[in-house]
């Protein structure tokens, strides 16, 4: 096996990246991310549900991932494991996903470098393949702000992909 250390940039501490045209990529620190799975978990959640391509304005909300799974953002602390009383599996995934906000008039153009996205076609799930990476993508607080949850181990790749996509605009 070779020593490929120099072929890979050392990961840097996440910082806001300000690009031209007012486009910014900002790492987001969420209080908590909790994965909930169960029958009709979507219908049973008390929090606003984020789906594509609506704009989430609440600070606590549930990302609709699939019919039996949501990602609760900034929700209350829940014990990991099977909750028989509510028939839901609960896992804290706060460290599983890195989160970025991509903001600016050109934000959607940048994202379209990585996936076939259409604002006019709604979807109940925010799960997407973006730049080849499985992510959760939705609009947060404003129509020109897109929030992305990406696996922690792939955050570096995602950030690089965004930086690569932007100069091509």
């Amino acid at each position: 096996m070779r020593d490929d250390s120099k072929k890979w940039d050392a990961p840097g501490a996440p910082t806001t990246l300000e690009m031209s045209d007012g486009l910014t990529i900002t790492p987001v620190q969420l209080a908590r991310q909790t994965l909930l799975s169960g029958v009709d978990v979507l219908g049973r959640t008390q929090h606003p549900i984020a789906a594509w391509s609506g704009v989430v304005t609440a600070q606590t909300y549930a990302l609709s991932l699939r019919r039996d799974r949501v990602l609760l953002v900034n929700g209350p602390a829940l014990a990991d494991g099977w909750h028989g009383d509510i028939a839901q599996a609960v896992s804290d995934v706060s460290d599983c996903y890195s989160v970025f906000d991509i903001r600016g008039d050109r934000a959607f153009s940048v994202l379209k470098r990585g996936a076939e996205l259409r604002l006019d076609v709604p979807s109940k799930s925010v799960a997407r393949l973006l730049f080849g990476l499985g992510v959760f993508l939705y609009r947060f607080e404003a129509t020109d702000t897109f929030r992305v949850h990406v696996f922690r181990g792939q955050a570096e790749t995602f950030f690089k992909s965004l930086k690569f996509a932007f100069p091509s605009l």
């Binding site: 994965l35 799975s37 599996a89 896992s91 995934v93 706060s94 460290d95 599983c96 696996f151 922690r152």
Partner: peptide
């Protein structure tokens, strides 16, 4: 229900 928590 299956949760992949490898990166957590």
């Amino acid at each position: 229900f299956i949760h992949d928590l490898t990166q957590q």
